[in-house]
């Protein structure tokens, strides 16, 4: 029998209500359901999450580091997106 390895899944966990799912690591499983079960056993043995996403690693499209600069460049010159861009007098409250 030819050996077929279980595919790789990336695991994302929502720590608690109100937070985003965050990438915590990866694991191997034969199918989606097993991936969820394994993710629960490997990554949430101490109630680290209230919800888990598993995604086949080969279904993820990522930016490549080689094109890093041009890819993220549009954000680079838009400092006005950040609150610290704006000078506000110190004595104005709640800003």
């Amino acid at each position: 029998m030819t050996k077929k390895n279980w595919p790789l899944y990336e695991v994302f966990v929502r720590g608690k209500r109100g937070l985003n799912h965050v990438h915590v690591g990866s694991l191997h499983a034969a199918d989606d359901e097993m991936a969820l079960h394994n993710a629960r056993d490997v990554y949430t043995r101490r109630n680290e999450g209230v919800s888990i996403w598993v995604v086949r690693a080969d279904h993820i499209t990522a930016s490549s580091p080689g094109e890093k600069d041009p890819f993220f460049a549009p954000a680079g010159d838009k400092v006005y997106r950040h609150p610290t861009f704006y000078a506000i007098p110190e004595d104005v409250p709640h800003l």
Binding site: K4, W6, A30, D31
Partner: peptide, 13 residues
């Protein structure tokens, strides 16, 4: 067990 799980996953798919 690993092989059976693959076979089952393929059948389900």
């Amino acid at each position: 067990v690993r092989e059976a799980a693959v076979a089952y996953a393929e059948k389900q798919a």
